[in-house]
Simulated assay, not measured.
Amino acid sequence: MPKLAEALLVIDMQKALQYSYNFNDLINNINQRIKEYRQANLPIIFIQHHDQDLERDSDLWNLSDKLDRKDNDKIVEKTHPNAFYKTDLEKVLKDNGIKTIEVCGAQTEYCCNATIIMAHGLGYKIIMEHDMTTTFDNNYMIAEDTISFFENIWDQRYVTFQ
């Protein structure tokens, strides 16, 4: 079993992103990590985005029904790609003495990247497994290449891959 951090951050695995690359397989992989964190009695924090294009309380805003989420899991709502920006995420982590986090979710080049860069800047140690984020094809790269590109940037600079 791969090493666990002190908390698992599941970023924006919402219905609006259900057609992103490999979404269903990613849900299964995230659920496996959630299971491991639950067995170790470690916190799982779900990050949930809303803005003018993704209205709060809309169906597409909801987290995927396929996620293994429990009522006592923490949810942090955000309106910016960076999950620390104008949220209580840092307070939640500090109040629980968390210094290492594992990140997974969507979208690789937006919310995952912004959160990883900020977490690193705040002094958190970040671990990840490969291919634990998703995105869409864009005008420059297919989703697989975008994920690989960002994992290469993150590797050993911001993230320790296992």
Rank of each mutant, 00 (worst) to 15 (best):
K78I: 02
N31P: 07
Y19K: 12
F150N: 13
N72A: 11
R69Q: 15
F23T: 05
Q162E: 15
W154C: 05
I126N: 06
I147S: 05
T133Y: 05
L42V: 01
Y158R: 02
I142W: 08
Y21R: 11
A106K: 08
A143W: 11
K86H: 11
M128V: 00
D59R: 08
D53E: 14
A7V: 07
Q18A: 14
D65H: 11
G105S: 09
V103C: 06
I116T: 06
N62P: 09
L54Y: 09
R157S: 13
T134F: 05
I101Q: 07
K99E: 05
H50P: 06
I44L: 06
M118Y: 11
A7S: 04
T133K: 08
T160L: 03
I147T: 09
D155K: 14
N22S: 07
Q156M: 14
H80K: 13
V92P: 02
L8D: 00
R56K: 15
P2T: 07
L93S: 04
K94Q: 07
A114T: 07
I153K: 09
H50W: 10
D137W: 00
F46C: 07
D59T: 14
N62L: 15
K99L: 02
D25C: 02
S20K: 11
K94L: 06
D51W: 10
H130M: 09
V92S: 03
G123W: 06
Q32P: 02
K15M: 11
K74P: 03
S148P: 00
Q32K: 15
M141D: 13
T115P: 03
L67Q: 00
T115D: 04
I44W: 01
I126K: 03
T135E: 08
N152T: 15
Y158E: 08
F23R: 02
A119S: 05
G123T: 01
G123R: 06
L54I: 15
M132L: 13
Y85D: 14
F136P: 01
A16W: 11
R56H: 12
T79Y: 04
K78V: 05
N96Y: 00
Q48N: 08
I34L: 02
Y19G: 13
F84H: 00
G97I: 00
I142Y: 14
D53K: 15
D65V: 10
T79C: 13
Y110P: 05
K86C: 10
E90I: 08
A83E: 03
I153A: 11
R56C: 08
A143D: 11
Y19I: 13
A40H: 06
R33I: 01
K3P: 00
L89V: 11
E129L: 12
A83Y: 06
D51A: 12
E102V: 06
